[in-house]
């Protein structure tokens, strides 16, 4: 558990072409913590995760993973440090079957879960292991997207809206998987619209608006700040 990765972002700016999307984002997440990034649609949450992963070419500032700056690193290098990414669009491959999707990510070390353990956690996936990736239901695809990164031995997880549009029983299963990551001491950055789900799991919440972090709410203050949070989320 000593191997969990910390994440420190300072003054991160990110661009899509000429469009300036992140305006100086700073986050400080110690190893083993679970935080969420919340905020309205278009606030820049996905862009933040993609910037960490190296998937946004044009970015400035500093992104330190366990002290190592990756602002100029390509995605494969970030991944090999032990960072796992579950994208908002899930990113299941149509040309790979379920097992192949699971086996695709390169292992970082041997501390990840075995295929058998993963199938025990998500029995649906085992039943469908020979199916083409995109033949799965939305919920199954999301399970697969999470299951896929449990195998690699990564210890910093970036999860982009893993419960979006899913039925409550599936949300529960996803919750179980995230709890498991937490119990293993991993660091988790969770982008989440479902605030009830988020409060159950996370230690702290960063609030994002128009490409900036505008507030940080520790777990203990969630109840007291309920009205303000609803305002932030535009509910």
């Amino acid at each position: 558990m000593a191997d969990a990765l910390s994440l420190a972002i300072a003054d991160l700016h990110a661009f899509y072409g000429d469009s300036h999307v992140l305006h100086g984002v700073s986050l400080d997440i110690p190893a083993g913590e679970c935080v969420t990034i919340i905020g309205r649609n278009g606030a820049g949450k996905t862009t933040t995760l993609r910037s960490i992963m190296g998937l946004i070419q044009k970015r400035t500032g500093s992104i330190k993973i366990a002290g190592q700056d990756v602002i100029a690193a390509p995605p494969e290098k970030v991944a090999r440090l032990g960072v796992a990414y579950v994208p908002e669009e899930r990113g299941i491959y149509a040309t790979l079957d379920v097992t192949e999707n699971l086996l695709l990510p390169r292992k970082v070390n041997d501390r990840g879960m075995s295929i058998d353990d993963i199938y025990a956690l998500f029995p649906n996936l085992k039943e469908r292991r020979r199916s083409q990736g995109t033949r799965l239901s939305g919920g199954e695809q999301q399970m697969l997207a999470i299951a896929r990164v449990l195998r690699t031995g990564a210890s910093l997880f970036l999860l982009d809206e893993p419960t979006e549009g899913l039925a409550p029983v599936i949300v529960q299963q996803i919750g179980k998987a995230i709890e498991l990551m937490k119990s293993q001491g991993h660091t988790i950055v969770l982008v989440e619209q479902n605030f009830r789900f988020a409060t159950k799991i996370a230690d702290r919440h960063y609030v994002m608006e128009r490409g900036r972090i505008i507030d940080m709410i520790p777990r203990a203050e969630v109840a007291a700040k309920a009205t303000q949070i609803q305002q932030y989320l535009g509910i």
Partner: peptide
Amino acid sequence: RTLRAATENPQLTRAFGIN
């Protein structure tokens, strides 16, 4: 498997540690 993945979605495939 890796070639097919890189053919389908090269950027995401890099994010899974594949050069």
